[in-house]
Each structure stands twice: as structure tokens, then as C-alpha cells.
Design a protein around this nucleic acid. Structure first.
Length: 830
DNA sequence: GAGCACTGC
């Protein structure tokens, strides 16, 4: 039986004690994104077939007559015969609180599509509607709409399974405030310009897969084609390398990074009537920036939107709403104070209607200035927690015992998901389980061990999603990837080691460290929840209850753990002059901010007065770290050939490792032989270049080529995507000639290439000292060349490195040999 | 002698 669904709404009455309807598993977000072209082609091929299968009696319509009488894209109702009252459809008709608008005052653009089978799309949508009605959030549609009519900012806690990500955009899309609105904005020269503001809802997601699969699901539910597949499509998405929207798009799922990028070009987000920020609790650095910019946008005078409000919905799965509430309130307060000062302090009624954490909306004199909050309980089956009675020293060993204990005692079906720290522990445990399984009682069900980590080739990852063979229990050994990015169905038992590898940037040393640390309570709860998606489950924590209680409440926000150079560049490019006054959701330490500013000065991204330079503006628009972007600009001054070569290398540096890890001795030797013709004695940078050139020049079968050279085909596909994007961007900004010359590339010039790199990485250098070790030139830290480098074990005058990381010791990764006088010149030039 | 997870016009 499902747990009781308990739902309450702000300060309103408690509606608990309703029984939950039968759970519907959310669509899994685990599907492979694949490559853009392949998917786009596939989608076009597959969709009609899928529909035909779903409705065997429905002959796919070729006809135009069905299509031509479709209403325009906006306000097109889906007829739901069995439902007497569908709140969503009434939204645009309900004018009790909305200002009256002539229905056809400004008819939205209509685009016709003669190819899509709209009838079958609608039938699908109608059948999905029955499932939507059962989502915990569904009953609150009216209330949510009502509140957002009155207020601009809403905070929504929606637990896993509440349906918030798919339903909220549908609740809002037909609201009167969500229509394109004509507005006048004052331009820099003082003249007025007429523009259209709004009409579209943006929903941000931290991950690409989530953005794409949510868009696909919402398109189905709304009975509209997806993205660019039809000009009449109302739902689209936008992620790097893959944007699929149409002229009629009204609901757009995008990654946080993509929204930031859009904001660089359109700071007032004039396309949007609302921005829904989903999964804020994950607190990636991009979501912090988005939140800061949005706060400035809603609490400011909206002059760039001609005064048209922007609605902001901030959604989180965990209940830490107080800090968010305070965050947005402060923005409104600051603005009130400013206005007070302007109007000489004679305004009245400045009390904010949100003092006790909730707002009843109507009473607030600030109207749209108030913030409203609501909490929707999720749908989750109960999960029993079993703690280790004693502290555990070896969690691999402890996990092994628990896995077999579960397997012997617990009934089938019920797969086991084990959370470990990394590839190494996963592979160790994999071997152990397989060894023990050999001696298992043959009358017992079999065990199928499946590793799952990001570096695993795609095909191996997919095995995890296949259902277990008969009489077999799946044991999935996963890293953090299974905590948020990937949902595995069939899991009823979770084993949680309580640890994860965490990356932490140490400002003072300019060093990234990757260390095993205890997870937070909210991560522990998230892991546990993975056992209760489909039925009641159990979670075995390989730590004591006391240890659990001592854990941090939430994960450390990324903004406190990473290099801030890129974030600050983005802010500067958006015209934030005073970084210290920027509304940070969590303020990073002053030292970290200063260090990042210094770095931006060092690469000429800022002028002496702290304002952004032309170089900085250019860098902000590149899909690269500012440092790599600087290298690209430097290379462009060394001629087309150098720039093309540097693009190839930068493309490699901005994706995961392109060389496959070799585990066995045997493979290692094979790899050495296979890769010998790729290795360059100048170092890793030139080795990457020769690899990209060889891969790109392979016309027969790149996959086979990659396998033979023990190069990751998946990584190389990303490299080619980045390379293409960077080349296109360089052509656009005239750094490369318009035409792509597909000719023969001359031999690279290692000196020019490495000198270009020094323009961004002059401080990432080390020299050989008499004892045979390397010391950083700035800071005099000892650093060792990473074993994955082609220069590992070699001694050269000086090295340039891409990354300085600490695991067991300090390593330089991505290393090339440079001359000391180049380094001297690069450092003197600043 | 070694590789947590995400992400970008």
C-alpha cells in the first residue's frame, strides 16, 4: 500500500488523510541522449509508428482537412469527454480576478502543419490525462494559478513523484499573463521601441537528459508534436548541441547553462512570461546565478520588459524554503527602500506579507511583491531504514555481506542498488560478489551484477535498464550517478555506504581536490528513496544512526566548492559591476571572489576599473572556461592553422578523458602499442591534437578506429561536437574564414600552439628542480606529473598543465613541455 | 602509477 499522501498548501487548511491513488511511476529520465542528428532522424522516423502501434485502428492521417480547422496554437483545448470540469481549460476564461481581455485582441501567430497526425496525438494526450489527474499536485492547479495571478514569485516544495516538473508549466500556459504582450521600452538613445514581451514559459533543469525527456513527456500530455518536428509544436527544449523548438513553442525546457547563455543576449528574458526553476535543491553553480539574476529582474523596475511582470516559480524537492523566501524578500525590501529614498520616505504600508513563511496573498498591499509558498507531498512507498549497529571500516566488505543477506532472506522480485564512491570500489565489489555467487546454493535465484558509473561505455550502462532474466536478482553497483541522474526501475533494496567523492576547489592553492567524504542527510534520504519508487522497500545504511544524525543537512552548494572565474565573468558580462552586492543565494568567501577577479584580470577579461573588457565579453559568450577561451583568442593571433589546431586540443580538454582506462596489464600493453603512433613527445596537448586529426581523418569506421586505439568513441563524439561548435563560432566572429576549408592540414607548429596555451595558463606551470621533482612557478608547490600523461616519468625543463588536482597527492594533468623563457614572457606580459 | 557527478548561443 502506498503511504498516505499528505498535502498542505501554504497556511491553508491541512488536507491530509486522503488516500493516495495507485502510484504511477514517473517516466524514467535514464534514456540515452545519443547524438543530436541521430536522434532527430530517429524521432522523425519513429513517431508515427509509435502512434500507430498505440492506436492500431487509427490510420495515420495524411489529410489536411483535419489540420486546417485546428485552432491556433494558443488556448487550444483538449477535449476530455469523461470529465465534467477541467480546471486548466477554464483558466483563460475565468475572469473573476483577471483583467478583462478581448479574446482575440492579439491573436497569437498560428502555424500550420500538414504532416503531423494531430488526431492520434490528442488521443494519446486524452489517455494520459487520466494519469495526470492522479498526480498529487493535480488538485492544486486552481490554487497555484490563483496565487500566481496575484503574485510574481512562488516557491514550491514538491517531493519526488508529486508531478511538479510536468504539470506546473501546463497549469500556467493558458493564463492571461502568459500571453505575448505589446510593450514599449526605452532604448539607449532615449527613443522608444515597441516590442512583444512574454508568451513562453521556461523550465530549467540541471541535466540535459531531464530537459529532453520532460519536454517529450509534456508534449505528449498536451497532445502536441515535440519541438522542431512541427511548426505548430507548443513544447520544445534547448540543451547544448541540441535545440528543438518551433515558432509556436510556449513551453520550453532548458538547462540552467542554456538559460544563462540566453540571458547574455536577452538580459530581460523578453521571450518569457514565466521562468520555472526546477531542482533548486541540487544547488549547482548555475542555479545560484540564475536565482540571483531572477531576483534582480523581479524586484527591479522591469524597464527592459516595458513593465511587463515576469513570474518566477522556484521548485525544490527539499523543504529548505526559508532561505529562498528570505532571499527573494530581501530583494523586494531593498527595492522598497530605494523607492522610499526617492519619494522622500512618505510611502505607507511597507510591511511584507510573507513574514511567517507563507502568504495568504490577497491581504498584501504589495500585491505582486509578496512571495507565496506551497508544499506538495510526493508519492513514495515506505522505505524501512536499517542502520549498521557498529561503525563500518571497510564498506566494500560490509556491502558484500548485506547483499547476500538480502539475497538469502528477502523474496523476489526486488533488485538491489548499492551506492559506492567510485569506479575502483565498484569494480572491487563486482569481483567479490561474482566470486561469492559461484558457491551459492543452486536452488537460490541467480545474481546478476551490473556496474554503473559515468565512465562506463554507453552500451554497458544500458544493461542496467534491461529487466532481470527469470529467477535472477539484479545487483547494481553504482556511483552517485544513480542518486539523481539515472533512475533504475525494479529496485527495492538500497545499500548506502554513506560516502561520495566530492570535488573541492582550494582557492589558496588553485587546486582541485577530489576526496571521499560523508554525504549529507538530504543525499542519504535521496539514496534511500530509490528503494521506494515502485513498492515498499528497505534501505541498509552502512553507518550508525548516530553517524547519520551527525551528517550535514544538505550538500555544500557548488558555488562554495568551485573556481568562480567563470561565474564572475558571466556576472560582469551581464553588467553586474559590484560583485560584492550581487544577490548570492550563498555568498562565497571574499578570498574566493578576489582570486577569481584576479584571474580575470590576468587573462585581460577585465579593464583596470574592474569593468568587463572586449576580450571578456567575447570570452563570456564562448562555451569554454575563461582560461580556455583566452587560449583560443591568443591562438587566433597566430594564424588560422594554429587556431584550428588549438580548437582541436581545447575540444579534448573540455570533455571527459578521451583515452580509455586500461585495467589489466595485458590491455595496457596493447594500448601502448595501439596508441604509439598518436603519442607526441611534446606532451598531452599535441597528443590530443594528433588523436583528433587521426579520428577526424578516419573515413571508414571511426568507431572501429577508436576501439583499436583504445580511445573512447563516446568522448570523441563529444569532442567533434565541441569542435564543430567552436569552429562555427570562430567563423561567425571572423576569427576563421567563412568557408570551411576541407583540405590538407599542414604540420602543426608545437611552439606556437603551446605559447597560445600560456596566454591562459601562465600560472599553471612548474619547473624541474635539482631533486628531480617539479615545483609550481607561482607558489612553489610540489607537483607530480599524472600517470595518465604521456610525459609521466619524463624530465623536462618546465611543464604547462591543464589541471592541478589532489587525490592521493598533487598531480598535474594534461601536461606539455615548455621552455622557461616562454613562461617568463607570458608572466611578464601581465 | 590513476579516473565522483553534472553543464555551455
Amino acid at each position: 500500500m502506498p503511504e498516505k499522501v499528505h498535502t498542505y498548501f501554504g497556511a491553508l487548511e491541512d488536507q491530509s488523510s486522503k488516500k493516495a491513488p495507485k502510484a504511477i511511476p514517473e517516466p524514467t529520465l535514464a534514456e540515452d541522449v545519443g547524438r543530436k542528428k541521430r536522434r532527430n532522424k530517429k524521432r522523425k522516423r519513429d513517431e508515427p509508428t509509435e502512434e500507430a502501434q498505440a492506436h492500431p485502428n487509427n490510420v495515420p492521417a495524411r489529410t489536411e482537412e483535419r489540420v486546417k480547422d485546428l485552432p491556433p496554437a494558443v488556448n487550444e483545448p483538449i477535449t476530455v469527454p469523461s470529465v465534467s470540469k477541467e480546471p486548466e481549460l477554464e483558466a483563460s476564461l475565468d475572469q473573476t480576478s483577471a483583467p478583462k481581455q478581448k479574446p482575440k485582441a492579439r491573436p497569437p501567430k498560428s502555424f500550420t502543419d500538414t504532416k503531423t497526425n494531430f488526431t492520434s496525438l490528442r488521443e494519446k494526450a486524452n489517455s494520459l490525462y487520466e494519469l495526470r489527474k492522479k498526480l498529487p499536485i493535480f488538485g492544486h492547479a486552481d490554487e497555484i494559478r490563483q496565487r500566481l495571478r496575484e503574485q510574481d514569485v512562488m516557491l514550491l516544495v514538491g517531493e519526488t513523484g508529486s508531478g511538479k516538473s510536468t504539470q506546473i508549466p501546463q497549469f500556467l500556459v493558458n493564463e492571461f499573463w502568459c500571453r505575448p504582450t505589446p510593450a514599449k521600452v526605452r532604448q539607449e538613445d532615449g527613443s522608444e521601441k515597441s516590442i512583444t514581451v512574454g508568451g513562453c514559459i521556461a523550465i530549467t533543469q540541471p541535466r540535459r537528459v531531464a530537459a529532453i525527456s520532460l519536454a517529450r513527456r509534456v508534449a505528449e500530455e498536451m497532445g502536441t508534436p515535440l519541438g522542431s518536428s512541427s511548426p505548430a509544436s507548443k513544447v520544445g527544449y534547448s540543451v547544448r548541441f541540441d535545440t528543438s523548438t518551433s515558432p509556436s513553442t510556449r513551453v520550453k525546457f532548458l538547462t540552467e547553462g542554456m538559460l544563462l547563455q540566453e540571458m547574455l543576449h536577452d538580459p530581460w528574458l523578453t521571450k518569457y512570461s514565466a521562468v520555472v526553476v526546477d531542482e533548486v535543491h541540487e544547488r549547482g553553480i548555475n542555479v545560484d546565478l540564475v536565482a540571483g539574476f531572477l531576483r534582480n529582474l523581479v524586484s527591479g523596475k522591469r524597464e527592459g520588459r516595458g513593465g511587463v511582470p515576469l513570474k518566477v516559480v522556484v521548485m525544490s524537492a527539499t523543504a529548505d524554503m526559508e532561505s529562498l523566501m528570505g532571499f527573494f524578500q530581501e530583494g523586494f525590501k531593498e527595492q522598497e527602500q530605494e523607492q522610499k529614498q526617492i519619494s522622500n520616505g512618505t510611502t505607507n504600508g511597507t510591511t511584507n506579507g510573507t513574514s511567517n513563511g507563507t502568504s495568504n496573498g490577497k491581504s498584501s498591499e504589495q500585491g505582486s511583491r509578496a512571495i507565496t509558498a506551497c508544499h506538495i507531498k510526493g508519492r513514495q512507498f515506505p522505505v524501512k531504514t536499517i542502520y549498521s549497529p557498529e561503525p563500518v571500516h571497510d564498506f566494500v566488505d560490509a556491502a558484500l555481506k548485506i547483499i547476500f543477506q538480502i539475497h538469502y532472506k528477502e523474496p523476489m522480485p526486488g533488485d538491489i542498488l548499492v551506492f559506492l564512491t567510485g569506479q575502483e570500489t565498484v569494480e572491487n565489489l563486482e569481483n567479490l560478489v561474482n566470486e561469492y555467487a559461484i558457491g551459492m546454493d543452486p536452488s537460490l535465484p541467480k545474481i546478476l551484477v551490473l556496474p554503473l558509473f559515468a565512465a562506463l561505455p554507453q552500451a554497458a550502462q544500458q544493461r542496467v535498464f534491461a529487466p532481470a532474466p527469470p529467477r535472477t536478482r539484479k545487483v547494481i553497483l553504482a556511483t552517485n550517478i544513480a542518486e539523481t541522474s539515472v533512475t533504475v526501475s525494479g529496485v527495492r533494496y538500497v545499500v548506502d555506504c554513506g560516502k561520495a567523492k566530492v570535488k573541492q576547489f582550494r582557492t589558496r592553492l588553485g587546486l582541485d581536490s577530489l576526496l571521499v567524504k560523508p554525504i549529507s542527510k538530504s543525499a542519504a534520504i535521496q539514496r534511500k528513496g530509490r528503494a521506494g519508487r515502485e513498492a515498499a522497500g528497505q534501505c541498509f545504511r552502512l553507518y550508525t544512526e548516530k553517524d547519520y544524525l551527525a551528517l550535514d543537512e544538505a550538500n555544500t552548494p557548488e558555488i562554495l566548492r568551485c573556481d568562480l572565474t567563470q561565474a564572475l565573468l558571466n556576472m560582469k558580462a551581464r553588467g553586474v559591476d559590484d560583485i560584492v552586492r550581487f544577490p548570492f543565494l550563498t555568498r562565497p568567501p571574499r578570498e574566493a571572489l578576489e582570486k577569481a577577479l584576479l584571474q580575470l584580470f590576468n587573462i585581460d577579461a577585465l579593464q583596470d576599473d574592474g569593468g568587463i573588457s572586449d576580450i571578456g565579453l567575447h570570452l563570456a559568450k564562448l562555451p569554454l572556461s575563461p582560461t580556455l577561451g583566452r587560449v583560443l583568442l591568443a591562438a587566433s593571433e597566430n594564424g588560422y592553422d594554429c587556431l584550428l589546431d588549438v580548437i582541436d586540443i581545447i575540444s579534448c580538454l573540455s570533455v571527459e578523458n578521451i583515452f580509455l582506462n586500461t585495467t589489466s596489464e595485458e590491455k595496457k600493453e596493447a594500448a601502448e602499442t595501439a596508441r604509439r603512433d598518436l603519442y607526441r613527445r611534446e606532451g598531452d596537448h599535441l597528443t590530443m591534437l594528433s588523436t583528433v586529426r587521426a579520428y577526424a581523418g578516419e573515413n571508414v569506421d571511426r568507431k572501429v578506429w577508436a576501439e583499436r586505439h583504445l580511445v573512447s568513441h563516446r568522448a570523441m563524439q563529444s569532442v567533434m561536437d565541441v569542435r564543430k561548435q567552436l569552429r562555427a563560432q570562430c567563423r561567425q566572429s571572423k576569427m576563421l574564414p567563412r568557408e570551411e576549408q576541407n583540405g590538407h592540414y599542414p604540420d602543426p607548429s608545437p611552439d606556437l600552439i603551446l605559447q597560445s596555451f600560456l596566454a591562459g595558463f601562465a600560472t599553471n606551470t612548474a619547473r624541474l628542480v635539482p631533486d628531480g621533482s617539479y615545483r609550481t612557478i607561482v607558489g612553489n608547490q610540489t607537483v607530480a606529473i599524472h600517470p595518465s600523461s604521456v610525459l609521466f616519468g619524463k624530465k623536462v625543463e618546465a611543464i604547462l598543465y591543464n589541471e592541478f588536482v589532489f587525490t592521493n597527492r598533487s598531480y598535474a594533468r594534461g601536461v606539455s613541455a615548455v621552455q622557461m623563457d616562454w613562461v617568463g614572457e607570458a608572466l611578464a606580459g601581465r
